[in-house]
Amino acid sequence: MYVAVKGGERAIENAHAWLAEERRGDRAVPELSLAQIREQMTLAVNRVMAEGSLYDPDLAALAIKQARGDLIEAIFLIRAYRTTLPRFGATAPVDTGGMACDRRISATFKDLPGGQVLGPTFDYTHRLLDFALAAEGEPPLAPAGGDGDMAPKPHVMGFLDREGLIEDAPHDDSPPPDLTREPLELPAARALRLQALTRADEGFTLGMAYSTQRGYGRNHAFVAELRIGTVPVEVEIPELGFAVEIGEVVLTECETVNQFTGSKTEPPQFTRGYGLVFGQTERKAISMALVDRALRWEELGEDDSGAPAQDAEFVLPHGDNVQATGFLEHIKLPHYVDFQAELELVRRLRAEASAAQSDTRQEAAE
Rank of each mutant, 00 (worst) to 15 (best):
R10T: 05
R10D: 10
W18Y: 14
L19G: 09
L19S: 09
E21T: 14
L34T: 10
R38C: 09
R47Y: 10
R47I: 11
A50D: 10
G52S: 03
Y55H: 04
Y55A: 01
P57K: 01
L59E: 11
A61C: 07
A67V: 05
D70P: 01
A80C: 08
T91G: 13
R104H: 02
I105D: 00
K110H: 08
G115N: 05
A132F: 08
E136M: 13
P140D: 04
P140F: 06
P143V: 03
A144N: 04
G145W: 10
M157I: 15
F159T: 14
L160I: 07
L160C: 08
R162T: 13
I166H: 00
D168K: 02
H171L: 01
D173E: 02
P176I: 01
L179A: 05
E182F: 02
L186P: 07
R190I: 09
Q195H: 08
D201L: 00
E202V: 12
F204D: 07
T205V: 11
L206I: 15
G207H: 11
M208F: 09
Q213D: 15
A221N: 14
A221C: 14
F222N: 15
A224G: 15
R227I: 12
F242M: 07
V244Q: 11
V249L: 14
V249E: 15
T252W: 02
T252H: 00
E253L: 03
C254W: 01
E255V: 15
G262Y: 00
T265H: 09
T265V: 07
P267K: 07
T271G: 08
G273V: 07
V277H: 01
V277N: 12
F278T: 00
L290S: 05
V291R: 04
L295W: 01
R296K: 13
W297V: 04
W297N: 04
D303E: 12
D303G: 07
D304M: 04
G319Q: 05
P334T: 12
P334F: 06
V346K: 14
A351C: 01
A351N: 05
A351F: 03
A353F: 06
